[in-house]
């Protein structure tokens, strides 16, 4: 495991505090997808989540985000991380089709907890500054993916959950998710990345979880 980046005291984040998720079962659509889940992460960590399609990676991320995934789910988020908020960037970009990209991001930023970044800057980071006034419904799938990443950049979450973040991105944009993960971790946040494109995050992930056969296991080096 690589050494975690120290975090400034000014940000009030203590490295000893850990995010913990424990559940006997995690459900998706009423069906148990994962069993005996016990996942923990420290501040400043980037954790890759690998596994075949339908193994439960997205369900794990939803549970980490605090969305309903069963009855006896215990989730503890370090207070400083919780204060900075949670961002789940999933398959659905969570953008309303009749609002422009800038309006969608303005809304997400207004709802987010903690310190927030600037929406124009976030759109510039992902190369969408010229499309800021375009309705999300008139954007391509790749643009929506980038807008989702811009949302995370603008909201500066303490817990960032990326679900297949490289899917649909063009060659020039493929490094954006890893850059976002690196910056979030550097600021003391916790990042989980569920991906089939492991090589895109090998340089940034501190460790990997393997999701398969209804179980989540720590991958041994």
């Amino acid at each position: 495991m690589r050494a975690r980046t120290p975090v400034s005291a000014a940000e009030g984040i203590v490295l000893d505090e850990r995010l913990e998720l424990r559940a006997d079962r995690l459900l998706a659509g009423g069906q148990a997808v994962l069993r005996e889940v016990d996942v923990a992460a420290g501040c400043g960590e980037v954790i890759g989540v690998a596994g075949p399609n339908g193994a439960g990676k997205s369900t794990l991320l939803r549970a980490l985000a605090g969305l309903p995934c069963g009855q006896e789910v215990s989730r503890e988020v370090p207070r400083p991380v919780g204060r900075c908020g949670v961002a789940l960037i999933g398959h659905d970009p969570a953008l309303h089709p009749q609002l422009t990209l800038a309006e969608n991001l303005d809304l997400a930023v207004a709802l987010a907890a903690g310190t927030r970044g600037s929406v124009p800057d976030a759109l510039r980071r992902v190369g969408l500054q010229a499309a800021a006034g375009r309705p999300a419904g008139a954007c391509s799938a790749g643009m929506l993916r980038r807008a989702g990443l811009a949302r995370a950049w603008a909201c500066r979450p303490g817990l960032l959950l990326l679900d297949e973040p490289t899917a649909g991105l063009d060659g020039a944009s493929r490094t954006l998710p890893a850059d976002l993960a690196r910056e979030t971790a550097r600021a003391g946040g916790i990042v989980f990345v569920a991906t089939h494109e492991r090589q895109a995050f090998e340089a940034v992930a501190h460790r990997w979880l393997q999701v398969a056969g209804g179980r989540v296991r720590e991958e041994r080096p």
């Binding site: 985000a65 605090g66 969305l67 919780g82 908020g85 949670v86 961002a87 789940l88 659905d92 970009p93 969570a94 953008l95 309303h96 609002l99 809304l107 997400a108 709802l111 987010a112 907890a113 909201c155």
Partner: peptide, 17 residues
Amino acid sequence: GLLDTDAVRTLCAVSGV
């Protein structure tokens, strides 16, 4: 409306609204 879309409801839930 906006608040009836799954995307915005999920955004609200994840953002702790």
